[in-house]
Amino acid sequence: MEHKASGQWEALPMGHRPPHGGHRQEICWDYQMRPHLIACILLCCASTIASATDIPIKEGMPFLSARKALLKHGWKPSVSKEMQPVGTAIELQNMGIIEIERCSQGVQYCELHYKKNKQCLGVTTTGEEVADLIIDAWDFRCP
């Protein structure tokens, strides 16, 4: 913080206000805008945390249980673009699971997508058979 003395701006110790009429616009911004800036930061963090806590799944959770929990919490399967299903994806599609983005062959993993309001949720699973699929990871990116 600074105050005007003998035509020069001098530093004031932290927490001290300049004398009346001796403050500059930056100081006004500091005192008036700081609460707004802090509120904005907290709101951004809270919405991210709210998104994260609204996800009823955990790493290592069986996929079919996780899917059921997601649907119960309002997440809807996001129909992906056309793909040629292979391996586990064929089995999943035959069970009516339409949110498959892709499933790999060899080291088995599948990527599935859900939407809730305007949020996206991508879920990655690992496992050889549908009954063995477990949640590996998830993110909030839209495909």
Rank of each mutant, 00 (worst) to 15 (best):
H36N: 03
I57T: 15
A46D: 11
Q105D: 09
G15Y: 03
R17T: 08
L133W: 01
G60W: 06
L64M: 15
E101Y: 14
P85Q: 04
Q108G: 13
N117T: 11
V86G: 07
K115D: 01
G15T: 04
G106W: 15
S47P: 04
A11M: 08
W9Y: 10
L121P: 00
C44L: 13
P56L: 09
I27L: 05
F63V: 09
S78W: 03
Q32C: 13
L12K: 08
K58T: 14
I38C: 05
E59Q: 15
D54P: 04
T53V: 15
E59D: 14
H113D: 04
N117W: 11
E10C: 12
K68H: 14
I55N: 02
H23W: 02
K4F: 08
Q108M: 14
G74M: 11
G74D: 06
P18D: 00
A50W: 10
M83A: 13
P143M: 05
H3K: 12
R24G: 01
V79G: 07
H113V: 00
R24A: 02
S47M: 14
F140V: 00
I27E: 11
F140D: 07
L42H: 13
Y31S: 06
E82M: 08
G15E: 02
R141C: 03
C142Y: 03
K76R: 09
H16L: 12
L70H: 05
I49H: 13
C103M: 14
S51Y: 06
L42C: 07
H16E: 11
E82G: 10
A131W: 05
K58A: 09
T124D: 13
W29M: 09
V86S: 15
A50P: 03
L43R: 15
K58C: 12
N117Q: 13
L70K: 01
I97M: 02
I100D: 00
L133H: 01
P13C: 06
I90M: 07
C110K: 03
P35T: 04
R141N: 11
C142A: 09
S47N: 11
Q105N: 11
D132H: 08
V107E: 11
C28L: 10
K4V: 11
N94R: 15
E101R: 11
